[in-house]
Design a protein around this nucleic acid. Structure first.
Lengths: 217, 217
DNA sequence: TTGTGAAAGTTATAACTTTCACAAATTGAA
DNA sequence: TTCAATTTGTGAAAGTTATAACTTTCACAA
């Protein structure tokens, strides 16, 4: 099949691709070098044909009768998602969560590189977290301009979130990952904002437990 | 409309309810006491009628011509999701991420109470993080049994994840929130496992940026 | 070289979800 | 009390997504 260039890809497909990527990586680390759609589907809690359909949509990456090659498929999905190139990211708010995020191995796995952190606390400024040095938050704007930063991760206290987002320059910043309790609309000043609620999955589990649902990922 | 007891509620609806809850709370803190479906929809990046339909499905919580009462709606959604009762939760792996999660205010907001943490590092044992004391990981199993713990949050190094999950007693533990890079199937020993990938939203942003999509939350 | 089994790729259909459009209900002002 | 302005709740239509069923292709072994 031809590589899909015209059809609109839904966000649900993209989210599943990230799941495939993760479970394929996980299987690869366990020594597997081929995986079938059935296996991927079981690991992700899906139906096998949706896995095949999702992947076939972007090109025929499998080998009939055999399955998908772990190394190749990883490379292909990385390419689809734009994870094949290193991306510089900055973090604002070097507290517990910010520190944990910079150190979270999952970001490096997908080529996100935290090159700097920003905070108001003078105690923290000048220190390094992982590879990232901590700068005063006043330096954020010029830093973004100078380094052409496109993605900002927000882990400041909720009370400060709005002011920082308002001050981001949409000529540079295209995406914001918001870990604060403030809910931003998905498009803000032409930037994509994704609100992340760590409690969300726990809330979903809570509902599942209460209602004894069997359910997917 | 009668309260829904028969129709199957999809997980997508539940996820949206958690979004509503969050944005309603956020509006409430900003001093609002009524919200219309349109306002909620805009904050969440959705269509207004889906908000109405989602809420109406569980009962008529709105007032025609006026909108939804912030306080009442919060209470209703909390009830639907089973967040109206305090739930004890334990954390395994008291590293950076574990510490950040225990301190994350979003969990307390929805009545999740971290009552203990477990770790292998003798340095950490005996200390407290938030309200939670850190115990040796050997004490996990008896602790779960003694306190009837139903939810476990997993923030250990990936290499240890499998062993800990295998050792959880499904007679007590119903839900696992897995922050490690290991991907577990959604049902493991009759426990609900939710795999959380902090990098996932960044991957989605990456794709959106690459393809200049306009998209929802 | 050919036959066989396995699993990808593909199509058609069923199931589900979202949106539209409007009736019903409520408030507040005239 | 009535009227206008709102906004919910909801049935039907449209649109989308997932599933099942089918066809094709590949690798391997005889």
């Amino acid at each position: 099949m031809e590589l899909n260039t015209t059809t609109k890809i839904s966000e649900a497909v993209i989210r599943r691709l990230t799941d495939y990527l993760r479970c394929i990586r996980c299987a690869g680390e366990a020594g597997r070098d081929m995986l079938t759609s059935l296996e991927i589907s079981e690991r992700c809690g899906l139906n096998a044909s949706i896995v095949r359909k999702d992947l076939a949509q972007f090109g025929a990456y499998g080998v009939k009768g055999m399955g998908y090659n772990v190394r190749d498929l990883t490379r292909q999905i990385n390419k689809i998602l734009g994870l094949d190139k290193l991306k510089d990211v900055v973090l604002v708010g070097a507290g517990h969560l910010g520190t944990a995020i910079i150190r979270y191995p999952g970001f490096a796995d997908v080529n996100f590189n935290f090159i700097a952190a920003f905070d108001t606390d003078p105690e923290k400024i000048g220190k390094t977290i992982g590879q990232a040095e901590v700068y005063p938050v006043e330096d954020l704007k010029p830093f973004i301009r100078k380094h052409g930063i496109q993605i900002v991760v927000l882990t400041v206290p909720s009370s400060e979130a709005q002011a920082i987002v308002n001050d981001l320059d949409p000529d540079y910043v295209k995406g914001v990952l918001n870990f604060t309790a403030v809910v931003f609309p998905p498009k803000q000043n032409n930037m994509f904002v994704h609100n992340i609620d760590l409690a969300k999955e726990l809330e979903v589990i809570s509902y599942c437990m209460k209602n004894c649902l069997s359910q997917g990922s």
